[in-house]
Design a protein around this nucleic acid. Sequence first.
DNA 1: GTGAAAGCGCTAACAC
DNA 2: GTGTTAGCGCTTTCAC
Lengths: 380, 380
Amino acid sequence: MTTGGPPTVETIAERAGVSIASVSRVLNGHGARPDTVRRVERAATELGYVPNAVARSLKGGRSLQLTFAMQDIGNPVYVSMVRQIQAITKAHGYRLLLHSTDAVVEDELAVVRSLADRTSDGLVLCPIRITPEHLEALRGAAQPVVVIGSLPDDAEPPVDSVRADSVTGAELAVRHLIRTGRRRIAFVNGPADTVPGRNRYRGYRAALADCGLASDPALVTNTDFTIEAGTEALHRLLDEDRAGSGSGPGRLDAVFCANDQLALGAAHALHARGLRIPADVAVAGMDDTSLTRASWPPLTSVDLGSAERGRIAAEMLLDRITERDGTSRAPARTETVTPRLVVRASSAPAETANAAQDAQDAHPPNTAHTAAENGQEVTR
Amino acid sequence: MTTGGPPTVETIAERAGVSIASVSRVLNGHGARPDTVRRVERAATELGYVPNAVARSLKGGRSLQLTFAMQDIGNPVYVSMVRQIQAITKAHGYRLLLHSTDAVVEDELAVVRSLADRTSDGLVLCPIRITPEHLEALRGAAQPVVVIGSLPDDAEPPVDSVRADSVTGAELAVRHLIRTGRRRIAFVNGPADTVPGRNRYRGYRAALADCGLASDPALVTNTDFTIEAGTEALHRLLDEDRAGSGSGPGRLDAVFCANDQLALGAAHALHARGLRIPADVAVAGMDDTSLTRASWPPLTSVDLGSAERGRIAAEMLLDRITERDGTSRAPARTETVTPRLVVRASSAPAETANAAQDAQDAHPPNTAHTAAENGQEVTR
DNA sequence: GTGAAAGCGCTAACAC
DNA sequence: GTGTTAGCGCTTTCAC
């Protein structure tokens, strides 16, 4: 008999005068006599019945939940990923579990291992760094995993992945700065011992070399990915640049930064010194976060496709999950998202900067031009 | 017997040569003979056993999951809430489900009702607006709910809630602007038909009145909570202000904005017109999001405690959940978070602004002073 | 088309 | 202490 708790199939069955099997069938639309359908639906409505999803999961072997794990949701890059992932999982009837690892490796591994607790049908993971332990954990994952980031160039990667092409991205930005007349281009990079740090530096060097410009080590610096660090780094570079101007070809005329936070920090340093952006120094960042529009002048940035990576990761994950119901398992895929330069006022050519400034009075320079217009610039 | 699937208590029991009950006891630390403990733990380790959390939930009646539902994670205010909530739920052994309602009322109601599916042990809800349907749904919620926002001032509110005091918050900002010498203070507000919109306007009016300043309707405007809307709104106000300057006491010397996005937009308009911040026009926003430090000069803003509201909401929810194991149900609580003014360079006094500008060359004006210093200013 | 019954994996009485 | 057993709420054979 039915107790005082929330209604269950049994409660409905009693009320409708049928068996619990019929209740289940009607509720899942598996066909029944019209009369039965009517009585069950009536009872369910009257009792305000809501199926117990946990019991369903246990029986069905699927939780209808997906997990997204990243360092810290405070980073705008992850915010755009979450938005995409959330939208897609929701559209497919999955709930989204959010997990912040706070950049603790052990926590990342724990997330992968906890896939075995059947709480989640799959995982999108943004690791800070891929260690051998990661690879082992991924290989033994109890549920499908998609990694956002760069897996080692292995013959057989353990899981699907989506990566940004930050080498090309950095090249795009630096070429753009050169093409618009800049010659002494500083580079404020993040930590050197990370994959993004290395790749963005490679892109910077490559673009300079391709355009026949020497790369001056005094113009490159590494620091943390924060606004404050960017400000401090640029003050330092400017001090040194001024001090050594006797030997060098003159003051720097552009700053390329490894992400938008650094670029904003750099812009602050320039403002504080009374240097004009872009008339005196052009500035460009990476990631094309919402900060680009918060900055004045609006910040040129390279969109490394954080939203798109989120979307692709979610889709890959859902593919794997539906695939599993099928037969064979396809080999792991690796997708690379094409970067896109978004030009805004912070990198307008120096010669036309003043004219542009006047024009801004009427039309604030929020209009962005993408690399589509100058796609041919991208050679690689 | 055991099939090829993932290991279960039964698999372990067979391997350890004990009953499944003993396995369960050992795994939950309920005491057993040392020998039994050893054998079970050994078997579990060897098999890489991970308990099925879904089965546990079904048996235990708790999912160990909590839900946070808000409009859109893209809004920085929600990001700081999520961070806090995530940290607290994690510390208490709960997973966090994220739900974006996209400001669709029907979706918000669905979230509340879906608490009956036992997928989540509780909900923190940030509704865009509280309708009678909301109240009804909240009253019948199958699990504890905490609302972040203003419930109607009812004798018995349906659930716990945490609210910001944006009336006082707006007053703080406007009083600060007045105290630092501003007299014609414009107000760029969000939509007028929302609770925040109404309250911020009340605070603005109250501060002006208290200081004996007339409030000029021509200085107040309503628009959307976006950067672009802020830019457009301020251009409009400036145009009108200039046009009617014959009758008015002169051009506006400060802008108070109902959130940081609007304030950044307003700052863009000022920059585009060549007006200096804060020398010509002071700017202040609300919410104290990360955008305040992205702006140049750094933006004065009122911290309405989004992080703290998130923290309190999560704690209230956990209280309710543990309480339920106890006896009686305490009446619904309502907490109000005290706003805090964070003064940055965008609102430095006009007279000293130029001197301050020079000082910034050495020390970028990132140092913030909180209302703690001038707390007595808050009279209400 | 419908009902009886098994079983998803686990925990907790209950007897021994 | 330990094993047997019931049962959380649901879906799905399997007979009828």
